[in-house]
Design a protein around this nucleic acid. Structure first.
Ligand SMILES: NC(=O)c1ccc[n+]([C@@H]2O[C@H](COP(=O)([O-])OP(=O)(O)OC[C@H]3O[C@@H](n4cnc5c(N)ncnc54)[C@H](O)[C@@H]3O)[C@@H](O)[C@H]2O)c1
Ligand SMILES: NC(=O)c1ccc[n+]([C@@H]2O[C@H](COP(=O)([O-])OP(=O)(O)OC[C@H]3O[C@@H](n4cnc5c(N)ncnc54)[C@H](O)[C@@H]3O)[C@@H](O)[C@H]2O)c1
Lengths: 211, 211
DNA sequence: AATTTATTGTTAATTAATTAACAGCAAAAG
DNA sequence: CTTTTGCTGTTAATTAATTAACAATAAATT
């Protein structure tokens, strides 16, 4: 698939591709070789049209009455989502959430690797969390360069969010995933994704109340 | 504000209201009494138009050249988002993520309360996590009734997601926040919110690679 | 007192995302 | 061999969300 086109894939399609891939890997592990759009839709709890539309956007075509070749689709999604070389990630703030995330991601995806953790608490410095070494935050610029880290996950207390964001931007990081409730802004060449758990929970509570 | 209108607030507006409120509470704590739309916008890193549009949708009006009264806005957002009585929450799966979330939320928001935790691991049953008692999963229907729990947070291994979702729906829960990567579907009268961390990270990685 | 400035509130326009509609066709059924 | 069925791929329509435009006006400035 053409690189120029990929840039223009809708954000929501990118998200779904990530999910399709994991679903397809599961199907493949169960010995399936082909799959219909409506089967993917059922797994993901979305509509078959949406699945076909996403597949159209990435330029793949299935075979009529046989569906999509699972192996081919996995490989194509990989070509779209994955970088050729490993993308290294830093996680900043090894508290409850930071440790949980590190454990969750470490050694899972081959093309994404948590390469370093950072904290200020002396108890944590030098320790390894699921194989990831924790460094003092004042080492971060050096380590990011050394380990060619391009993505940062922020899990520090929200009072520290801006400081950490600034350090990350300064050290040339190109993507930030901010899990603190303090919104940040970044230069145009840095991609930012924020998730606020309190917001999600309050949203659920609102719609429950409204019933 | 009219209850009928509230139902039709856009989802994104609901999310931002939750965030405005927390920002406003901070401002209030700093002794501020009034705030302009562009100030809120700066804090949230969005546009002032969007802030004013959201405020318009909830039917509040500021005063020209003076801005919005912070206390009034906090109170109005409370009337919209909060239920009159406390909304009780159950969290299912007290692993890394479940424990982190429980710690994070417990005793924070007055109108939302984590009222019970559930697991299958005998080591965890009977223990308290940040003041929240952990029960065996086979007690869940009883406890949900007893404690009038209307919201469930799922943090079990993804192999268990569907089982837990079914139990929650069966026991009459009205809102589910699913943090496992296994998508679920629910009847119309249950509100569902899903968040998949891997998707977020792969999305960041994609846009970083595309640069 | 007249003019300028800064800000709100709202409508209109634009962009993004989803959903509907359907043509095309290979395989299955008759 | 002909018809029906079931699925793909794509265009068109719809809906949701954001952004632009600007009228109204209170306060500040001249
Ligand atoms: N725990 C959760 O489930 C949860 C959920 C949603 C959001 N959050 C947010 O995630 C963030 C972390 O939450 P947590 O529960 O893990 O908190 P935590 O207090 O357990 O962890 C924060 C960690 O950051 C470290 N830290 C502090 N200042 C630092 C700095 N300048 N540089 C590097 N490290 C620093 C601390 O030493 C600590 O280890 C918070 O902003 C919180 O609001 C947490
Ligand atoms: N840890 C993270 O940062 C993270 C991030 C994103 C998503 N997740 C997802 O969240 C879920 C939990 O992750 P985790 O890291 O906390 O895993 P974990 O293994 O530490 O915790 C899972 C817990 O669920 C319990 N459990 C298992 N079956 C159960 C059942 N039938 N009923 C009740 N409890 C049961 C286990 O005993 C365990 O305590 C997983 O689905 C994971 O994919 C975790």
């Amino acid at each position: 698939m053409d690189k120029r086109k990929m840039k223009y894939l809708p954000h929501k399609t990118i998200e779904r591709l990530s999910q399709y891939r994991r679903a397809l890997l599961l199907c493949q592990a169960n010995g399936k070789t082909h799959i219909f759009s409506h089967e993917i839709a059922t797994i993901q709890h979305i509509t078959a049209v949406q699945v076909r539309r996403d597949i159209m956007l990435i330029g793949y075509t299935g075979t009529l009455r046989k569906g999509y070749n699972i192996a081919d689709m996995i490989s194509l999604i990989g070509k779209i989502l994955d970088s050729e070389k490993v993308q290294n990630i830093a996680i900043i703030g090894m508290g409850n959430l930071g440790v949980a995330i590190t454990k969750y991601f470490s050694g899972k995806r081959t093309k994404l690797e948590i390469a370093a953790a950072f904290d200020v608490n002396p108890v944590k410095i030098g320790k390894k969390y699921s194989g990831v070494e924790c460094y003092h935050i004042n080492q971060i610029i050096k380590i990011i360069k050394e380990k060619d880290i391009s993505i940062g996950i922020i899990t520090v207390p929200s009072t520290e969010t801006i400081i950490i964001k600034n350090i990350l931007v300064k050290s040339g990081i190109k993507g930030i995933l901010n899990y603190t409730p303090k919104p940040v802004n970044v230069p145009d060449d840095v991609y930012l994704e924020e998730y606020d758990m309190t917001t999600s929970l309050e949203k659920v509570a609102f719609f429950v109340k409204m019933h």
